[in-house]
Amino acid sequence: MFTNDIYIRGKYATYLKYLSQKTEKNDRHEVVAGVFERMIDVYMTGAIVGVLYGLRKEEENTSSVTAKLFADVLVREQDNLKNIFTIVMLIDNSCGLTDDEKIERAFKNPDTPENMKIFNSYVRGGIEWLYEAFTTDATTKDEYIAKIYSVVNDFLEEHNIYL
C-alpha cells in the first residue's frame, strides 16, 4: 500500500499543483497559491477533506495535466497515509457497510483496488474543495496567504471546534 507512484490527472492535477508550493519552486514563473509545502500534503489533506464533506469525484481527463507523486515520498509518509486511509475506510458510507464491516475493510483487508478507488475519489473531491476554498476571492500571493488564516478560522467556526 502506497509503495508505487500515484498519478493524478486532469483538472485535479492542476488544482493539486496550484495549491502546492513545490510547483512554485520548480517553476518560478508559474503563479500558484502555494499554500501547501508539497503535493503529498495536498493529497493527504484532500483525502481527509473529501471524506469529511462526503465529496467523491471520479477520475477525469479533460486536460493532459498529470501530477505524479513519487513512490519514495509516499513510502516516507507511509504511516500518515495508512492512518488517513483507515479514517476514510471507517467514515465512508457509500457502500452501505455496517460499522463492523467498515472495521473489517479498514483493518483486515484494506489494500484492494476497490478501496483505493474509493480513497482516491475522496482525494479528488477534497482537492477540489481546497482549491475553491483558497482561490475564492483570492488572486494575489498576499490574498492566498491571508486565506490560510480565514480557511482555518472558518473551518473551526463551521464545525464548532474550539482549540
Binding site: 508550493q21 502555494g34 499554500v35 501547501f36 509545502e37 508539497r38 500534503d41 493527504m44 489533506t45 483525502a47 481527509i48 477533506v49 471524506v51 469529511l52 500518515n80 488517513i84 479514517i87 467514515i91 496567504i145 490560510i148 488564516y149 482555518v152 473551518f155 464545525h159 471546534i161
Partner: peptide, 18 residues
C-alpha cells in the same frame, strides 16, 4: 512560516471533526 505551519498539521486539523 505560515505555509510550513499550515502544511505540517493540515490533514490532522481537517480531520478534527472525523
Amino acid at each position: 512560516t505560515i505555509v510550513k505551519d499550515f502544511t505540517n498539521g493540515a490533514f490532522k486539523f481537517f480531520a478534527l471533526p472525523l
